[in-house]
Design a protein around this nucleic acid. Structure first.
Lengths: 198, 198
DNA sequence: TTTTGACCATTGAAATAATAAAGTCAGAAA
DNA sequence: TTTCTGACTTTATTATTTCAATGGTCAAAA
């Protein structure tokens, strides 16, 4: 049953958001849902595949949130500004899963999991490349290597996060103030970047 | 005697470059210089103050390298490109000291050391702000918040490094190829950034 | 003033024991 | 047949101890 799988994912997400992946046990997830552990394992053969499901769900929500503003008739600056807000919202909500880094949570080294995460990042990259392509087509910005520029843009945005996070203690939640600074810096960089592409 | 202190710093740097700060012992540094350990402690009361000296020396070399091209009559793009190369050269040479992060080596949590590092970063920031100021004066770029823009520029450049380093195993030396990619990305971002300031 | 051998105090790594978590299985319930 | 469970095994984490290595000191010599 697919409804059950979804319920499990949602239950897991609730725990993950609060305690992080590492500090959440399969027992706890089972208890939250008032089912036994083997029942959990019936739907997800191991923790990795559950996490995989969680990541797919989060990214699917992300892409859904982004889709609404993907084909509106607005400038590149505006679109990137809106998308920066959306990315930030997700970054904030799922901070404990450490999706901003290259791999979600360093401790998780399942190859399949890494692959899933990478493919999500790839999809995001492609989306940004496509946005750039349309912007070039409209004559809004100069012609560039779409893939590389999208990657550079996203990496520099992520880089801002990692630089800011490093100041405080990683693992621990950044303060409201730090969060605000990160968002402002991302917006500033985004504006300069887009202007620099013209 | 000041010559002795310099010799110690240089000896320490040789070890640090190769093995990193943590994996270098005071015994080894003393042995390299053919002096006893207490003799070392005569000049530097503890390991932290030695590291402090090392960091000051490295940054002093860095600022010296940069000074040569600081007041030449070239465009901002060119200057930033040259400086990117210089920064990269130092980043590469002193990779094992992890100067790209916010603090040199996470394990070192001496307050005085952090302060020294921060003040060096501050000095670098100020230098970049001053470069931007002159560029604004020349009418080369639009007026901006000098401090913040300098910080944003340097942070996004550092961010590129941290994003790229995270792909491979931190702590371990990145390959020639990875290094090349980092440098190229920094140059690309630098060009876009400067263009975006016009 | 500078240098040293011998010493002490802490730290950090290795080994081990104890605990908790991931994952399995035979079989019951629907 | 599909879904679920209590009781179990195996694997990974954490806590505790041990011990050598390292940072740091001191009285005394050069």
């Amino acid at each position: 049953m697919d409804k059950k799988r979804e319920a499990i994912i949602e239950g897991a997400i609730k725990r993950f958001i609060h305690f992080g992946i590492q500090k959440t046990t399969m027992n706890e997830i089972a208890e939250d849902l008032a089912v036994s552990k083997p029942s959990l394992y019936y739907y997800y053969p191991d923790k990795s595949s559950l996490i995989e499901g969680v990541i797919e769900k989060i990214f699917s929500d992300y892409f859904e949130a982004v889709d609404k503003d993907l084909f509106t008739n607005i400038s590149l600056e505006e679109r990137f500004a809106i998308f920066t807000d959306i990315r930030f919202k997700f970054f904030q909500k799922y901070y404990m899963l450490h999706l901003a880094g290259v791999t979600p949570d360093i401790t998780l080294n399942s190859d399949s999991l890494k692959a899933t995460f990478m493919s999500m990042k790839k999809k995001n990259n492609d989306m940004y490349a496509e946005i750039l392509r349309r912007s070039v087509e409209k004559g809004e910005i100069a012609a560039v290597d779409l893939e590389k520029t999208a990657e550079l843009y996203l990496e520099s945005m992520m880089g801002i996060i990692s630089q800011c996070i490093m100041h405080g203690n990683r693992e621990l939640f950044p303060s409201k103030k730090e969060m605000k600074i990160i968002l402002e810096k991302q917006h500033s960089l985004s504006r300069i970047f887009v202007k620099g592409l013209k």
